[in-house]
Design a protein around this nucleic acid. Structure first.
Lengths: 218, 218
DNA sequence: CGCCACGTTGAATCGGCTCAAAACCCGTGG
DNA sequence: CCACGGGTTTTGAGCCGATTCAACGTGGCG
């Protein structure tokens, strides 16, 4: 279940998108910090495991989720290049984290220095605000509004380019938005029919009428 | 709209439930820190206002929420006695906070000291985990499961007493759980019929079969 | 005592789900 | 180069749970 290949890199080659986030201070002293390659679907950590480390996405994407006893899944967040995840309130993971497609992850083991919390707090707060916005979507928006909000969020996190990559499957999107894959698919089709988006590939979306999407998500 | 009465207290008289949370360090130096009384429904802060201060509930309860353009409301959290709220990622409030019933609030203006982040991070992380658990409820649970999870959460935060107080209205509960008041009411009635809870008052719930509720919320 | 906001209950509607089948994409091998 | 195969996505039909709309009950307070 947890086939995860490990692979060493020279950080200089890989840093790229990860640089400039201002968290280099958290990295261990070595300037050649190795990263790990996770193959598609492999587990980064599991619910119940000991927590403490943080993770930064080098490339690829990650889904963080919980399961109910009967298998229902709620993805609480996706993490893209450069983003840091793995925060927990206590020393145990309450969620699962898996790679979406081949993904490079840098592990950061923060030694509890003085700067530690000062660096982390803004990141934790950003995650908090994201989660709270997501609550509004899940609690009070219909299927079309949810998908619109999702596309706008993904676009914003990819620099507001009109053509965005969706590394995740329809099933992932459904489990993120609290919808079934069929409903997600139907909304995508309707957005295409109405000329609001184009779908040049299964995992590519070109946003044609950004403002219409914004109106939809209110 | 923002009728909010202000009233001075001697902190020694009021601290009570607020003590022992370990955040006295954040309070200004004065040992007689005044608290403020907010009347039922009055606004503590509004979306768009400048943020920065934190707030600790002395007594009463607070709802934190966002609105959609058409008036739909999502309550992202309730805060009870002793709890700290008001975190934001940037220097602007993205949510509204209102008193539920008469509520005493202690304002904490943390001067950006070294300890600041170290004290705040665990609080922020607790809020984050709560929000993420809430996502699972809103995204993947049905009406009965949502109400069960809500009652268990409220019970846990009131020391796992069998008789719990619900300071908030059915409308607040609905807007917290992503349901209508009618659905909330129907679920309460069915829980009562089945002998899982008793409803000795409109805002009191006696949990008779805790384990059944736990099974329901999975 | 009577008012009025809040809460409960009922009937009909509707949005998203379930179940089912067809279409599509893409890697593989002939 | 094309045919094959398996997984993902799309589309369709019918169903069901939560909502909407409406009426009635209730309890808290002046």
């Amino acid at each position: 279940m947890t086939i995860h290949t490990s692979m060493e890199f020279r950080s200089a080659t890989l840093l790229g998108t990860g640089a400039g986030t201002g968290f280099e201070a958290l990295l261990p002293a070595s300037p050649l910090q190795p990263a790990t390659l996770y193959s598609s679907g492999s587990e980064i950590y599991a619910q119940g495991e000991k927590a403490g480390d943080l993770y930064q996405v080098e490339f690829g994407a990650v889904r963080v989720y919980r399961l109910l006893a009967d298998g229902r899944r709620q993805i609480s967040a996706f993490h893209l290049s450069g983003e840091v995840f793995g925060f927990e309130a206590d020393k145990t993971h309450h969620f699962f984290a898996e790679a979406i497609g081949a993904t490079g992850i840098r592990v950061m083991r923060p030694h509890a220095g003085i700067d530690f919390s000062r660096e982390l707090l803004p990141l934790a707060l950003q995650s908090l605000v994201r989660a709270q916005e997501h609550l509004l979507v899940l609690g009070r928006q219909n299927a079309a509004e949810r998908v619109a909000a999702f596309l706008l969020d993904m676009a914003a996190r990819q620099g507001d380019l009109e053509e965005i990559d969706l590394p995740m499957s329809r099933s992932d999107i459904g489990d993120y938005l609290g919808l079934t894959i069929e409903t997600v698919s139907r909304v995508f089709s309707r957005l295409k029919e109405k000329g609001i988006v184009r779908l040049p590939g299964l995992r590519k979306v070109k946003i044609v009428r950004m403002h219409t999407l914004r109106d939809m998500s209110e």
